[in-house]
Design a protein around this nucleic acid. Structure first.
Lengths: 261, 261
DNA sequence: CCGGCTTGTTCCAATATGTGAAACCCAGTC
DNA sequence: GACTGGGTTTCACATATTGGAACAAGCCGG
């Protein structure tokens, strides 16, 4: 199921790593075997190598594999360097304090939304716990905010990767519908999620754009229809734009080796 | 400089990954070349592969490599599964609320302290730590708390990996000194950091032990000599022990594929 | 403008590595 | 005691990796 064009060994190893991580729980050899498509012996050696390397841990009694601590180490470095996370932290805190709502910071990765950081509606800081999660782009505020900034082949490629699965009654399920919404978003610089991903959950998102116009990521304010409304969210637009601009400013001095797509 | 016994390709690739991550900033090919010991062509292909795989990003203009977003993705899974993080969260929040001081959660990884989570003090001080970061074991509260629980070859191995670099006047710089302190810690179940790592920073740590006595990790309360004292910290001992015990309890039902070392 | 320098990329034959079918082992279980 | 289903090991074979060396592409300083 996990497929890479990679003939290389490391490609396979990393695919296995992804697979184990994707399970979200310790996973036994046999489970991986059926899903991976690799022959028994190959998968076995791959797992062996990865555990030797500390990328995976294997409970000797359960014989279940889980991501290893080395990954946690690398994760930190990745988050600190490859993402907007550290640069945006202060601004997210500020926006969280000002609005009291849930805040998301995301980047575009392979046509999908990769959440980088988050502030919960109530609780203040929690580090990169929620970070690293991936979600769909076509039906989330941050996703649409970012897609709207893409053009030409990059946009095409990203749209091709959308599943357009219907999550709620208001999910945009066709490329045409999405494209129309993206037009609006591009002009307004703000994207609404009108319960398109989860019923009762609405959100307002703004893209984070480098001075040159290059897309860096997106911020969003999320709330519920029970507690707020699209109209009320719209009032937060300026604050949100402001936050996005400040993050962009913080990122400006940095040569950002990041190509969204 | 980065050395692995690994003859395997993935081992080398991961070593390179570590290396890039360790730099903490985008790195150019030549810098890696000198430090890695690999021949030019080899390193080149390794980097190529890793960037292809999304584990690294390479700024096309600067030609500088940095950790890639794929690592951020993996981060989530790793933190959620391989660490005490999710299990301890509630307890850390509680302890943070009760004491108002900086709280650290750490695990032992390769003889070093791997910080898993953190709560900031109400009036935050600047100090060296964040989730996923690694630090020395011999001169930190959490480190010593954990080392004290090791015995026999595991302890030897861990001690062998300590650098015993002097950070402050009170740093324990010999194996013998540390060993003596560990004895005390083992008996009391609490470890003090008496400004051993950073001047003015003190801390009290307790190990997190599974029912069977297996070492899982450690929690600590950190403060400054300006604001508090070792004596005052000692008063928090029971609360800290309690927190550690609760985390251990939360972890008990979970088959923990984690061997400290 | 041209050598000389550093930095990154490509070639290619030798070979160390990885491959995977099949055999094997071990623990439950019918 | 034979059977089944995980998990581990073997081994002849294929191929991916290796790394020296040649090549291309800046970037000076003369």
């Amino acid at each position: 199921m996990t497929e890479d064009i990679s003939g290389g060994t490391v490609g396979k190893a990393l695919a296995v790593l992804d697979q184990v991580a994707a399970f979200g729980r310790p996973v036994r050899f046999a489970e991986l075997l059926s899903d991976s498509g690799y022959p028994k012996a190959t998968l076995y050696r791959l797992l062996q190598t990865l555990t030797d390397q500390g990328m995976l841990t294997c409970d000797p009694v359960t014989q279940a594999y889980a991501p290893g601590l080395r990954l946690v180490r690398l994760a930190h470095a990745a988050w600190a360097q490859a993402s907007l996370g550290p640069l945006a932290r202060a601004e997210l805190d500020a926006l969280s304090a000002r609005t009291g709502e849930t805040i998301h910071l995301a980047q575009l990765d392979g046509g999908q939304v990769l959440y980088i950081d988050k502030r919960n509606a109530r609780n203040p800081v929690d580090l990169f716990s929620a970070a690293g999660k991936v979600g769909p782009a076509y039906c989330t505020g941050v996703g649409k905010a970012m897609l709207a900034q893409l053009t030409g082949p990059a946009l095409e490629a990203a749209l091709d990767r959308q599943s357009f699965h219907r999550h709620t009654a208001s999910t945009l399920t066709t490329r045409a519908d999405l494209f129309r919404d993206l037009e609006t978003i591009r002009h307004s610089g703000l994207a609404f999620d009108r319960e398109e991903h989860e019923p009762g959950i609405i959100c307002l998102a703004a893209p984070i754009l480098a001075p040159g116009g290059q897309l860096l990521g997106a911020v969003s304010i999320t709330t519920t229809t029970a507690r707020s409304s699209l109209a009320a969210l719209a009032d937060l637009g300026p604050a949100l734009r402001d936050t996005a601009a400040r993050i962009a400013a913080a990122a400006a001095p940095w040569r950002f080796p990041y190509r969204p797509g």
